[in-house]
């Protein structure tokens, strides 16, 4: 059971959250200017590291706010980002 530290509500069970995958993948400023491969990279390519990973969570059953944190994908240690 992951305990997710919501910056607004405090630490809660992961069951209160939705997972949002890699953090920091911004919607392109002008998608129409992108070539197919660059657009495909935005759509589908996400980091998948063994180790520290900055990821997004959504406190769907709480404050309903999105936030990012860093979690170690092997040990599940969490440090805020």
């Amino acid at each position: 059971m992951l305990r997710i530290p919501c910056p607004h509500c405090g630490e809660r069970d992961e069951t209160e959250f939705h997972y949002g995958g890699e953090a920091g993948v911004d919607y392109p400023a002008d998608p129409s200017a992108l070539a197919d491969d660059a657009w495909a990279a935005y759509l589908f390519l996400r980091a998948n590291p063994r180790g520290w990973f900055r990821e997004r969570w959504f406190h769907g059953s709480g404050c309903r706010l999105w936030f990012a944190l860093e979690r170690h994908t092997v040990t599940d240690e969490i440090r805020s980002a």
Partner: peptide, 13 residues
């Protein structure tokens, strides 16, 4: 519209 979500994908082959 210059963009909407999905517009760029609809332009793919």
């Amino acid at each position: 519209k210059p963009d909407f979500i999905g517009k760029r994908s609809l332009a793919r082959d």
